[in-house]
Amino acid sequence: MDEKASNEVNEKEIICVICPNSCRLRVSQDPKTKEINVEGNLCPRGKKYGISEYSNPVRMLITTMRVEKGKLPVIPVRSTEAIPKSLLIEAVKVVNDTHCLAPIKMGDILIDNILNTKISVIASRDIDVKN
């Protein structure tokens, strides 16, 4: 990409959410060394957060999935790890297109390797069969 080739420093402002200080981080990448530089953090945790938010922001996938024959019509689900932020909306669509069958136990894997991320989507609770 052109951006990579250019010598301009790509600065982004990111608010650190690790603690209530809410430091305003200025994060940039050195075009030559590719090193990511964080300023404005009051502690090392902010640096780590700034680098990860800059290079590969990730979020937990949290939504609900339709349940067949369940006591409730939907079950809350989550990804086992945070997935790339850019895949979030697509991943929600995959979950919406998937149905599962009661009974379900907390931790049951409902979707394996979602969008080839090697991350699974699991049940957040038990759902019994409707009687």
Binding site: I62, P76, R78, M106, S124, R125, D126
Partner: peptide
């Protein structure tokens, strides 16, 4: 954890 997991 999520809320339901905490409860479970």
């Amino acid at each position: 954890l999520t809320g339901p997991e905490y409860a479970q």
